[in-house]
Amino acid sequence: MPTDSGSQPQTSAPGSGDTPRIVFDDVVKKFGDTVVLNGLNFTVDKGERVTLIGPSGSGKTTILRLLMTLEHLTDGYIYVDGDPLTHELRNGKRVERKAKDVANVRRRIGMVFQQFNLFPNMNVLENITEAPVHVLGRSKAEAERRGRELLEQVGLGDRADAHPMQLSGGQQQRVAIARALAMDPEILLLDEVTSALDPELVGEVLGVLREVARNTDITMLIVTHEMQFARDVSNRVLMFDQGRIIEEAAPDVMFSDPKEERTQAFLQAVL
């Protein structure tokens, strides 16, 4: 057993005094009596692409959901650009932040879900323009112009008026990516975004994500079983087991020469 919670691998921003994009500070997450994360620490730099790997139940989804504020943080702190997300330390006490303040920080984060989660009461373009108009206060014309541009980018320029249910899974997921990008997020969370797709549709979605990685400086947290994709787009890979980082390395090192036995076993099973 190489590590315990006290000596988790710490990441330091390589050669930069910048505020990290994301900081997990002693994060604890319990579901009832189940402890999923027990004092997790890690940081992600601006523009970094980090892939989270690890066996089922190791807490990867939980980490992304905590960042998206879809789960309640049991203890500890999460910072985005130095700003506390849901909880902060005030006068030596850990207090929950006001909903409005949480919303301000959360607005910098976008997420793409395994099951797309498109809104069935709207067409494709409306799915994309809804939040820019009603959350960011953009004009409808401006939101539509940008929405069509994004649809073009994900290869669906001609499907703006389609209903989500008329699209294939791969197309729906590309709309979901466009929808998240329309909010100009600083951070994009991708939780197994190709796992619900038929194998022949995986490539088109990963292709779009590779483009996003190439053409933007959005910080990405990626959970995926597509190891080639992870290798190509990420700067760093974190291997989780039971809510702890047991190994971290650059992708080519992690995938070809992992140090930990558990990492080796895991990669052998999935590759």
């Binding site: 984060i109 976008g110 879900f113 989660n117 959350v135 929808r179 909010m183």
Partner: peptide, 16 residues
């Protein structure tokens, strides 16, 4: 639940 979570991920207010 996925629909509710979709709205949170887009930072929608309660009214929206």
């Amino acid at each position: 639940k996925a629909q509710w979570e979709g709205t949170t991920a887009l930072s929608m207010s309660w009214v929206t």
